[in-house]
Design a binder for these strands. Structure first.
Lengths: 184, 184, 184, 184
DNA sequence: AATGAATGAGGTTTCATTCAT
DNA sequence: GATGAATGAAACCTCATTCAT
């Protein structure tokens, strides 16, 4: 692993555990077994590290959205599937997502990415609901509002899963919950 | 307004806007038009200010829970009512709730309070669902899991409301969403 | 007891226990059950309190010296008596002496008083030894040097007594020690 | 000289001259021509600097005690020799000893070290007096008490030498004083 | 590329002192 | 005389960043 990636990996772990402000460059260097100066060979600033983490997450998310879009285009998309896929996406990017969630109240760049998450998921869900209605599977409910509600469920469960791992996992039951509410 | 309350009010505003770490005592003093030393006449430490804010919120929340419990005992409680009441509670304690949400990843005392929020709301929702099932209004669904799902919706909407005020308000539609899913 | 005396008494206790710097005006006021402002009605500054304590001790010491001088003038003075009397003087002014000992490395006024202690005791001891030699009771030793030695014994024992109260008390044996060394 | 040693040397000088509390990190940095932050690269806290100074002194003292013990074991030890050697030891560690003397009323670690000084010197003196009595050179006096008296003389002279350098040096005469008192 | 000592701005906190009541 | 809130300078300490090696 290259030094830059070691720094990124270590920073991810630290920031997700203690938060951005308590993840000091000094600690980061110690934990990563490098010198503090080295950090600045690879990143312009401490915030720059976070930007790299967020950029990588943004890329992963765009892949995820793209794959869902493709399924949508092939008529193979259901609400259930989106939820299952998103939960899988979070599982694979657990640390990164946690960082985004813990910093979007503090940093503009993080808030920007979170907005992208919101908007894209909302749009996908809208399209999926629209499709369902057209197909006759989904009840005739207001599309935008219900997409937003499903989104809050998805994000709420994500947060519960990441920050309260001792709570029983209700992701499957949540899908049932939505099915009952939306499917005919 | 007494100095202590000025400090508290100013701190609330600052912390909710820029987060706990960026709300420095120096800035706080300047904004509140007092000297830094004065802060320490009224609070033991910067963290102590936060503890006071959280303690006040905890008290407000306990009142809220109590009032819901009373309605439950009188059989006047519906899921819809809990959601409406909680949204009203958040509206009245907007800044405080936002502070809790932005600090529970960083501070134990804040996480403790958030856990109280989770646990109490979950229990109330469970009791309410149980009651509904007994009365025959609510479908025969797994109680605990569905209470948790409703709770994630409630908290998710709260967060959406506080951090993304430009999003259209779907709280009413969310209630409909739950009715469709749970009511017979 | 007047407020001024309450302050002095409380300050003595505090300074002798935790030292001048750790005896804060805030603590002093709390312990004395008065307000911080009141301190400054009676004393110009925190150091001024110390000066009053030292001045009182200086006065007591001058009484002590005077009484010894009178005995000397009446030919009723022995080394033994000076030692016994000084130990009694310390016993009566324990706290004050301890304060002087703990501050003379830090404060000029305190060092000045300590110099007075040294000089006066030295002179008295010199005169006493001279008298003893003249009378034929004391060996013919260098007066000044031996007075200084006896003085270091006296001050050393005082310090031992005040700071290491668990050490066995050797003040009586110390007198024997000096008798063996100086008396014929 | 390395930065750490510069800091230590400067701190020694400052603390011995103005005391621990008045030796501020700000002043220390200015005097040592470094920034305040640098101090904390080399020491954990201001007190940590003092602990290093005391630890070094403790080590030197243990060497001193060991060397005296060796002489004792070889029967080459006299009270006179212990006094001369200790005075030499103080001469070589003047500043450090002064720091210990000025802080043992304030700091536990310093008081601990002073207790070590007391105890070790007392024990050595006791053994030396015992040996002298057995050999027939020393009068048959109570061992412990007389050891303590000699110790107070030694420490008293040390203090006189360090804090009152203008007083005439009576260390040689003090040895005579003890010889007259203890030797047959 | 890497190091790690040094920096200095700025953080939290303390405390002797003042002043309106 | 007394109060105690307020002050502000200065204390100790942290930490992102720089720089000579």
């Amino acid at each position: 692993m290259k030094t830059k990636d070691i720094i990124l990996a270590t920073a991810k772990e630290m920031i997700s555990q203690v938060g951005f402000h308590r993840a000091t460059t000094s600690n980061l260097a110690k934990t990563a077994n490098i010198s503090e100066g080295t950090i600045y060979r690879h990143f312009e600033s401490k915030e720059d590290i976070l930007l790299h983490i967020l950029a990588a997450l943004e890329e992963q998310f765009s892949y995820f959205i793209e794959s869902v879009r493709q399924k949508l285009d092939k008529d193979q998309c259901t609400l259930e599937m989106i939820m299952v896929d998103y939960f899988a996406f979070v599982e694979e990017n657990e640390v990164d997502v946690k960082i985004m969630l813990s910093t979007y109240g503090l940093l503009d760049s993080s808030k920007r990415l979170m907005a992208i998450f919101l908007k894209n998921l909302e749009l996908i869900l809208q399209d999926c609901i629209k499709l369902g209605i057209k197909k006759g599977n989904v009840k005739d409910v207001p599309v935008e509002e219900n997409a937003t509600v499903v989104m809050t469920i998805i994000f709420g469960l994500t947060r519960l899963h990441l920050y309260w791992p001792n709570e029983t996992d209700v992701r499957t039951e949540a899908i049932e919950f939505c099915r009952r509410s939306l499917l005919k």
